[in-house]
Design a binder for these strands. Structure first.
Length: 200
DNA sequence: CCCTGATTCGC
DNA sequence: GCGAATCAGG
């Protein structure tokens, strides 16, 4: 794949929208996120410095000898690093989940054989009202996966009655190693506190 | 571990 | 110019 006008345009568009390099790469197809990042830099559009903390960019890298000739950095690309003035974080996470033509990757990740410790159904717990509210929010955006569709990184929080058709798993991206998404991690692992009430 | 972007450097 | 490898964070 080469960087045709269209592809570059899409790249610019998506990058501008705050999409991650990997997302862009997926969308484009035929390229890796590295390729996208590389292109982004070459195009000059780089820093999306909006909410990124001053990561301090000390250009002091001790390179162990550079046998190559001291080529002049002929890169008069003054990168219009103007203040994008974008206070709001652009992370709508609204990914268009469509079948992208991906001829490669035959060995997709294997499906989880279940048998994993499934979470307790949200009972009458004393969880942060916030957390619960968040869960209700999230459930509306849940991927509603079936048991078979769960993978190593899909939230395995069950919703609904297993004995009904109205049963599915959250399916949103899990948090780190946890089996649930952020919202569900919040209610899955209780601080274990309110205990005395239940006199057994 | 997964993911992000940044940089380097052989091609 | 390109992008895998590698680096540096989160």
């Amino acid at each position: 794949m080469s960087w045709t006008d269209e592809r570059v345009e899409l790249l610019k568009k998506m990058w501008g929208e705050g999409q991650s390099a990997s997302q862009i790469a997926k969308e484009l197809g035929g390229v890796t996120r590295n390729a996208v990042i590389g292109k982004v830099h070459r195009l000059g559009l780089s820093n999306r410095t909006a909410g990124t903390p001053a990561a301090a960019k000390p250009e002091a890298k001790e390179k162990p000898a550079q046998p190559a000739a001291p080529k002049v950095e002929a890169k008069p690309k003054p990168a219009p690093r103007t203040e994008p003035a974008r206070p709001a974080a652009v992370q709508p996470a609204a990914e268009a989940s469509s079948e992208e033509p991906k001829p490669a990757t035959p060995a997709r990740r294997q499906i989880i054989p279940a048998g994993q410790p499934l979470p307790p159904q949200p009972s009458a717990n004393e969880i942060s009202p916030e957390a619960l509210a968040k869960v209700n929010e999230v459930e509306k955006k849940a991927k509603k996966l079936t048991l078979m569709e769960l993978t190593e990184r899909t939230c395995k929080w069950p919703v609904g009655d297993p004995a009904t058709e109205d049963f599915w798993f959250c399916g949103l991206p899990v948090q780190q190693g946890k089996p649930y998404c952020e919202a569900h991690v919040g209610v899955a692992f209780q601080p274990m506190s309110s205990r005395r009430d239940r006199r057994r």
